[in-house]
Amino acid sequence: MTIPIDVRAEDPAGADALALVAELSAALGAITGDSGQASFDVADVRGPRACFALARDAHGRALGCGALRPLEGDVAEVKRMFARPGTRGVGSAVLRFLEVEAARHGYLAVRLSTRLVNGRAVGFYERHGYRRIPGYGRYAGSEVSVCFEKALPG
């Protein structure tokens, strides 16, 4: 049985958003040794052509999150993707929402980076049509990161 998931843009400083980002940071710390917090700034997802998405179940419980921020020109970056353990379909729903928002804002592609050691995330993005690209920005030349890109319908 599929549980309905409602994904909407919400305030990244809201209590549920902060709790999910803290859970993500702890999970990333356990998997990779780095929380990833240094590569995320809330101000980046509050401006034009940006958003912070929260997924909730039918009872309003926060299940997952993700963010979209401008990267360069017609390319956006996906940040802080997270689904609480034990949930199904949450990550896919959040990613789909972010891709639709990116296209709506006029982006032609979205990029993201994750750690190679995070095999679950690498597989997730590959299953969702993301292709590996050379490291960009702060990830250029990184031995521990893998970068992805997906073209959006334009």
Rank of each mutant, 00 (worst) to 15 (best):
E10I: 00
G89A: 09
A121F: 15
A43M: 05
V7L: 14
G154E: 03
G141C: 10
R56Q: 13
E77K: 02
G60Q: 11
V21C: 03
F40D: 00
E77L: 05
V21N: 03
A62G: 11
V7N: 13
V100W: 02
G137S: 11
L68F: 06
A15E: 11
Y139C: 08
I3D: 11
A93I: 01
F52A: 00
P134N: 08
A17L: 04
P12W: 03
L68G: 03
A55F: 05
S92T: 05
V90S: 08
L108S: 12
V78H: 10
V110M: 00
G89S: 10
S92M: 00
A50P: 06
T2Y: 02
G89I: 08
D34E: 15
R69I: 00
S142Q: 06
V117N: 04
A140G: 02
A30C: 10
A93K: 01
L98S: 05
V78K: 08
H128F: 09
A19N: 12
V94D: 10
S92P: 00
G86P: 14
R49Y: 05
V117P: 04
P70A: 05
A26W: 06
T87M: 02
V122R: 03
A102R: 01
D16Q: 12
A43Y: 04
S39I: 08
E72K: 03
Y139S: 02
P134Y: 06
T87N: 02
L54E: 01
L108W: 11
R132E: 14
S113A: 13
A53E: 01
A38I: 07
R88K: 15
F52T: 01
R80I: 04
L63N: 01
R111F: 06
V90D: 07
A9L: 02
E10F: 02
E149S: 15
D57N: 14
R115N: 06
Q37N: 12
Y130P: 04
Y107S: 02
S113F: 04
Y125D: 05
G29Y: 10
L112W: 07
L116S: 09
R61A: 15
V122T: 02
P48C: 00
R49C: 05
E126K: 07
T32L: 07
L24E: 04
R46Q: 13
V75G: 05
A76K: 05
V144I: 13
V78Q: 06
G36I: 04
A121L: 14
S92F: 00
R104G: 15
A30E: 15
V21M: 13
G137D: 14
G86D: 15
R61F: 13
G47F: 09
V117D: 11
C147A: 08
D41I: 01
V90F: 09
P4R: 12
A19C: 14
E99A: 11
A103C: 09
L63D: 02
Y136D: 03
L71N: 01
R46Y: 02
A43R: 12
P4L: 07
T87L: 01
V7T: 15
V110F: 01
A27S: 11
S35F: 06
E77N: 06
R69F: 00
G36F: 06
P12R: 03
V144L: 08
K79V: 04
A9F: 00
Y130K: 05
A151V: 10
